[in-house]
Simulated assay, not measured.
Amino acid sequence: MSLPSALAEIVDDFSALADSDKVTLLLEFASELPDLPESMHEEAMEPVPECQSPIFLSVDAADRSAVTLYFSAPPEAPTTRGFASILHQGLNGASAQEIAEVPADFFHDLGLAAVISPLRLRGMAGMLARIKRQVAEQSGGVSS
């Protein structure tokens, strides 16, 4: 599996934990999702309808060597915020090519399936798919 080093480290952190501790770590990630810059508004961001909570994302891949990700997720949706934060911490600053090479199902390696519903995990897959599509569109078609 080809993962940027920051995302690989997150996967390793989750895989080393018991199921109950994985939920705790996911909630810690939720509290670490950065706020949107004041210049960015949800209206200009792409919604992720696969998520049960309203989440929006935007990608800036103008610099193919260091993609920037933005997420907006409500505080009352800690699971969704946790997923967004994992993707932000794991992919923000990665190259367009590195993001294109992330397997669509990498999140299974986090080991959350035993503690998070498949419907919620589908939300993380939706976020990643939109990130990859936006990166490909903005960077001239880099694809996995």
Rank of each mutant, 00 (worst) to 15 (best):
T80V: 15
A84G: 02
P34R: 09
M40P: 01
S85A: 12
F29G: 03
G93Q: 08
H108R: 12
K132A: 04
M124I: 15
Y70P: 03
S20K: 13
A61L: 09
A18H: 11
P75Y: 07
I99E: 02
E137I: 12
R130I: 12
G82A: 06
L33V: 08
S85C: 06
R133I: 10
V23F: 02
A125T: 15
G123W: 00
A104D: 15
P75T: 15
S85W: 01
S20D: 12
G123M: 01
F71D: 00
P34M: 07
N92L: 08
H41T: 14
L91Y: 05
E42I: 15
S58E: 07
V135W: 03
A104K: 11
L25M: 09
S5K: 13
Q89K: 14
A96T: 14
T24C: 05
H88M: 03
G123S: 05
I10D: 01
P103M: 07
E32F: 06
H41S: 12
E50S: 13
V142N: 02
E101S: 14
G123N: 01
S20W: 08
M40F: 11
L121I: 14
H88F: 14
Q89W: 08
E98Q: 15
S65I: 08
E32K: 14
I55T: 07
E28F: 04
T68N: 12
L57V: 07
A114I: 09
D12C: 10
I99C: 06
A129M: 11
R120Q: 05
R64F: 08
Q52C: 12
S2Q: 14
D105K: 13
M40Y: 10
A44I: 10
F29E: 03
E9R: 13
V11F: 01
L7D: 01
K22Y: 05
I99G: 03
E43G: 09
Q134T: 13
S65D: 15
I55S: 00
A16V: 08
A100Q: 12
M127P: 01
A96W: 08
H88P: 04
G140A: 09
L128Y: 07
G93D: 06
T80P: 02
P54V: 12
G126H: 04
E46M: 10
A8H: 04
D60Y: 10
I131Q: 00
I86M: 02
P34C: 07
G140F: 10
F14D: 01
Q89H: 15
R122H: 14
S5D: 09
S39G: 03
P74C: 05
S2G: 09
D63C: 09
E43R: 15
A114R: 13
D63F: 08
G93W: 08
R120S: 03
